[in-house]
């Protein structure tokens, strides 16, 4: 695909428009997603209900009683002419991870697959530069892209059921801190006491899409004390 194919607008049912900026996971494509998300937040398109940013696209839902696809697409095109919002600086977050074998239940298997030992795996994970690309799958599941190439693994062939909340899981370039007991086919390398669903009314989700995340290693004793 050449760049002139994008942005592309697709009507979704009677009540949404999908704006596509590309067809792969890419930092520059995602930056365009974030830019449009911020502009629309500052200058809402009349009749729209919510904007959902993802890796390479945004979904904009609307009330079909109030507007239609053409009007929403026109409104979005106008906003694409707006320069980036001043002051839109990504926030940074520290997330504490305990890489104990009892919690990071796949560490041994990941060592087999990568040829790295446990400490090398941990160092690789800690060295990653992570950005919140999107939320998906389940409430609070923030997709952090930035796992170093040496630690990028395909998903497991089958999902494992009932993985507890708070596990740090990786697959490909992506990492998630889980928030619910859910199935996953990703690799469980640790556990975090940092809650992504904060339980705070004013700020129920720890990250905004576009934020930067750094992982900090903590010991089992520190983890248990939290």
């Amino acid at each position: 695909m050449t760049d002139k194919d994008f942005p592309r607008f697709r009507a979704v049912a009677d009540r949404a428009v999908l704006v596509e900026f590309g067809s792969q996971i890419d930092a520059e494509i995602h930056a365009q997603v974030i830019r449009l998300d911020r502009v629309i937040a500052a200058f809402p398109v009349p009749g729209t209900i919510e904007v959902v940013p993802a890796y390479a696209s945004l979904l904009i839902t609307f009330d079909p009683i109030a507007t239609d696809h053409a009007a929403v697409i026109g409104g979005v095109r106008d906003r694409m002419q707006v320069p980036d919002m001043p002051g839109a600086v990504a926030r940074g977050h520290d997330v504490e991870v305990c890489y104990d074998d009892e919690l990071g239940t796949d560490l041994a298997e990941v060592a087999n697959m990568t040829g790295m030992d446990r400490e090398q795996i941990i160092a690789a994970h800690l060295a990653g530069e992570y950005r919140v690309y999107m939320y998906g799958f389940a409430p609070g599941y923030a997709y952090l892209a930035g796992v170093p190439a040496v630690l990028q693994l395909p998903r497991k062939p089958a999902a494992v059921r009932d993985v507890p909340a708070g596990r740090v899981i990786v697959a490909g370039p992506q990492c998630i801190v889980t928030t619910l007991k859910m199935p996953t086919g990703w690799w469980i390398i640790g556990a975090s006491a940092t809650r992504i669903l904060t339980g705070e009314v004013a700020r129920p989700f720890r990250f905004d899409v576009g934020d930067v995340v750094r992982f900090q290693r903590i010991s089992r004793n520190e983890y248990d004390a939290l």
Partner: peptide, 11 residues
């Protein structure tokens, strides 16, 4: 199937 995850709508 190499599309990046995209938003899903009810329906």
């Amino acid at each position: 199937l190499d599309m990046p995850s995209e938003p899903v709508l009810r329906g």
